[in-house]
């Protein structure tokens, strides 16, 4: 039963998450709130692991969530669920690729869909922020976190660095200060 639900939840995510990478994250927060399969804090950790391991982020996330919810079969079922809509839709579109791409309806829809996705991802960020102020022993640490976040953000806006470097830097900061 859990497998059917996992497949269905990730099928929905795969169907509605457009825009790649982080687009799956809002749907996972939604899933977290509705199913209780994992906490928002665990989700944050999963995002970090998915970002710093090879493979597309969406797929990594599905594997991780599925695995932590229902073991190896869970990981496989969730990942297949996430991919199924893309597979089906791509196979349907493959025949009239160019026409689909240039269709003015499709263009209009995506012109409005993209900003909506931004709002969705922003909400995921919003939900995650409170968890960043909690240190390893449950202490609330606002000042060092804000200071580090601002520093990190400034450095990274100024110089383009791979996300793994961000994650490694903040892991070191965590071990030393949190």
């Amino acid at each position: 039963m859990i497998f059917l639900r996992l497949f269905w939840e990730f099928f929905k995510t795969g169907l509605f998450a457009t825009g790649g990478g982080m687009a799956t994250v809002p749907f996972l927060f939604d899933m977290c709130a509705r199913t209780g399969w994992f906490t928002a804090q665990e989700l944050a950790d999963m995002i970090a692991v998915s970002e710093s391991t090879p493979g597309p982020i969406g797929i990594n996330m599905a594997t991780y969530v599925g695995f932590s919810t229902a073991g190896i079969p869970g990981g496989i079922v969730a990942t297949l669920g996430l991919m199924a809509p893309a597979l089906i839709i791509t196979l349907m579109v493959a025949r009239f690729l160019a026409r689909f791409n240039d269709s003015p309806v499709v263009k209009t829809v995506f012109r409005y869909l993209r900003p909506a996705v931004i709002g969705l991802i922003l909400f995921a960020f919003w939900q995650l922020v409170p968890y960043t102020f909690v240190g390893s022993e449950g202490k609330v640490l606002v000042l060092p976190v804000v200071a580090f976040a601002v520093l990190l953000f400034c450095i990274l806006r100024w110089k383009k660095v791979h996300p793994i470097v961000w994650i490694a830097l903040s892991a070191v900061f965590g071990i030393l200060c949190l």
Partner: peptide, 28 residues
């Protein structure tokens, strides 16, 4: 490990925010 992940959560926030900014530049 717990401490490292407490730190990593900050990076995840920053990553999500930077994805938002990058997307916003194109879509808004």
């Amino acid at each position: 490990v717990a401490r490292a992940f407490a730190g990593i959560r900050i990076a995840v926030c920053a990553l999500i925010l930077s994805a938002v900014i990058k997307l916003a530049k194109k879509a808004i």
